[in-house]
């Protein structure tokens, strides 16, 4: 697959603060590229550098293999974006906003295309309303329509589910999948929530404090065999000893008198639970989570997490 966007050693400092630190990644055509990091991790700064809104302190960003700078703004004809909030001209109607931003792409976009994108994002019938009367979800959808209207190859969606109700989040997710599958768009999707990314991303990049932490295909990062199982029980030294002789020992990653942790496929959890009960363990709590989630959560509490690649 061809690379549609790429950064090399991209770095941005604001005074003494390094917002993005030597970040390199590449997005291939057809990817839903999940860009994950907690708030303030440097996601928006990276996206802004990719779009030429912020100038890198060092390093480079490429779009379609060309070095992106202010003189190459025609490259933006291949990109549609919403960054952070979907802010538009509230005193104008949705249709006027869409029409205006469509005209700025300097492509000859027919009225039917405007109607088509409104249909895609589900705003048909509401386009004549003033944007200030729109709900947050409608604004997000109009933002996507604006990003989509000039038929770009790459869609950059920065936190598109921010401020949406649960139902809206589901709709947005379905819309993104629809755009990827049915319209062949490459999508850079940034979020601070893992479960949003993990459900749809084909590739995932996690950054923390401007640095790349993890990057790799979702199926590898989200391998079910990497599911983390944590058991809390009443203190019992025998259980840990007994388990060494069983099939579960291979999955054991940590143990103590009152807790055990395993890494295994979720399908094996009932069997593990049965063995524990049969062997007299007084289980207080048993729960599973994906190791990536565990890892991601640890980032929010810990600053010195090592770099990891898959």
């Amino acid at each position: 697959m061809a690379i549609i966007a790429e950064t090399k050693e991209l770095t941005k400092s604001f005074g003494n603060t390094i917002a993005v630190d030597k970040l390199s990644f590449s997005i291939e055509e057809g990817d839903i590229y999940g860009f994950l990091g907690e708030n303030g991790a440097g996601k928006s700064t990276t996206i802004r550098m990719l779009l030429g809104l912020i100038y890198p302190t060092s390093g480079t960003a490429y779009i379609k293999g060309q070095l992106f700078n202010n003189s190459k703004r025609h490259l933006l004809q291949h990109v549609g974006a919403i960054i952070e909030r979907p802010d538009m001209y509230g005193y104008l109607s949705g249709w006027d906003n869409l029409r205006m931003f469509a005209a700025m792409s300097f492509k000859n976009i027919p009225k039917s295309r405007l109607e088509e994108v409104l249909e895609i994002v589900g705003l048909t019938g509401r386009e004549k309303d003033k944007v200030k009367a729109y709900s947050q979800g409608m604004k997000q959808r109009l933002g996507i329509a604006i990003a989509l209207v000039h038929s770009p190859d790459l869609l950059i969606l920065d936190e598109p589910t921010n401020g949406l109700a649960p139902q809206g989040i589901v709709e947005m997710r379905n819309l993104i999948l629809h755009l990827s599958r049915d319209h062949g768009k490459t999508i850079l999707l940034s979020s601070h929530l893992l479960h949003e990314i993990e459900q749809i991303a084909s590739k995932i990049l996690i950054i923390h404090r401007g640095k790349k932490m993890v990057e790799g295909p979702a199926e590898q990062l989200l391998d079910p065999n990497e599911t983390l199982v944590e058991v809390q029980m009443e203190p019992d030294d025998n259980i840990a000893r007994m388990i060494k002789a069983t099939q579960w020992h291979g999955s054991l990653t940590g143990s103590g008198p009152a807790h055990l942790t395993f890494k295994m496929h979720p399908g094996k959890i009932p069997g593990l639970n049965k063995w524990l009960v049969e062997n007299g363990a007084k289980v207080i709590d048993l729960h599973s989570k994906h190791s990536l989630e565990a890892y991601f959560l640890s980032l929010t509490n810990d600053s010195a997490t090592p770099h990891r690649t898959v």
């Binding site: 030429g52 809104l53 703004r73 933006l76 004809q77 960054i83 931003f101 700025m104 300097f106």
Partner: peptide, 15 residues
């Protein structure tokens, strides 16, 4: 202030 500047500048317009 209304946040449209960044949207404008993601269109193929020179500054």
């Amino acid at each position: 202030s209304i946040g449209t500047l960044r949207l404008l500048l993601t269109k193929p317009i020179t500054r």
